[in-house]
């Protein structure tokens, strides 16, 4: 291969990297603009408190069973793992501390975020996408109702409110799962376990968990709304929007969790 040919191939490679980067930045810009518009329009009248309550019920209340089950099983499994690993160097007594810190700081917010993203982001994208391809959104606009205010903002605000509440519940249930397994299977003293749990957790940890949850809630609703609102191409388009919403919500939850954790504890 001549030097000239290598140069041409190099430029072609750089061009393709540049194209991908530009497309990525354009996508980020579109999402940011969409989120900004949804917040700004949602904060100006007319308001739809009924729609907000409806979404709080859908996102918060109806997610409780899946969130509760995930939390209790994870808390119990975590206690067993810490006990097994800790017993190799006589550190079984760390079970209450590691369970409570692990659940409150990391597993509670992340698992709730992922479970709710799977449940809610997908249903938002599917519902809004179907409304888009069946012209219901156009019909709404011609009837002088702004889809941003009526459909999108209540979902976004409800998710930001509901996720912290769900994480509080999940944290409590997760800690209880660890407690039940530790006391009834691993032979821990109930009073000591609770004392240790209280000793190793602080209000800052809960504040951090709630802040993470609010961010995750924002991303879950934003991805569901964004992909649903921009759906094109009939049933196949709705399917694509649903998948894209869930995958992008997962990525945003996991990456923002890392960023927040590193900033807070790094």
């Amino acid at each position: 291969m001549t030097v000239q040919a290598i140069g041409v191939a190099g430029i072609a490679f750089l061009a393709s990297v540049g194209r991908v980067l530009i497309a990525l930045l354009a996508g980020v810009g579109r999402v940011a603009r969409f989120g900004f518009q949804t917040i700004v329009r949602g904060l100006s009248p007319p308001y739809y408190p009924g729609r907000l309550l409806e979404q709080l019920l859908h996102i918060g209340w109806f997610s409780l069973p899946v969130v509760g089950l995930t939390a209790i099983f994870t808390g119990a499994a975590l206690a067993q793992q810490i006990y097994t690993a800790g017993s190799r160097f006589s550190a079984q007594s760390t079970v209450p501390a590691v369970v409570v810190i692990g659940i409150v700081r990391e597993l509670g917010p992340v698992l709730v975020g992922l479970m709710v993203a799977g449940r809610v982001s997908s249903s938002m994208a599917a519902e809004l996408g179907t409304m888009r391809v069946t012209e219901q959104m156009d019909a709404m606009t011609t009837l002088r109702t702004d889809p941003y205010r009526y459909l999108l903002a209540p979902r976004l605000f409800a998710a930001v409110i509901a996720l912290p509440l769900l994480v509080l519940v999940a944290n409590a249930i997760g800690i209880m799962g660890g407690y039940l397994l530790a006391v009834h299977k691993l032979g821990f003293n109930a009073a000591n376990y609770l004392t240790m749990t209280r000793k190793f957790i602080s209000a800052d940890d809960f504040e951090m968990a709630l802040a993470k949850a609010a961010v995750f809630g924002f991303f879950i609703a934003l991805m569901g709304c964004y992909h649903g609102y921009r759906t094109e191409g009939g049933a196949a388009g709705v399917g694509r929007a649903t998948t894209d919403a869930v995958v992008s919500a997962f990525i945003l939850i996991l990456s923002s969790n890392l960023i927040i954790t590193v900033i807070a504890f790094g």
């Binding site: 012209e135 219901q136 019909a139 011609t142 009837l143 109702t145």
Partner: peptide, 26 residues
């Protein structure tokens, strides 16, 4: 406007669909 596929809001009952333009969904 009458849309090709009717474009009725399937989450709302008929009466709320018909009056949607008067209430703007409220």
């Amino acid at each position: 406007m009458l849309f090709q596929g009717s474009a009725l809001f399937d989450s709302l009952p008929v009466w709320r669909n018909v009056t949607f333009g008067l209430t703007q969904g409220r």
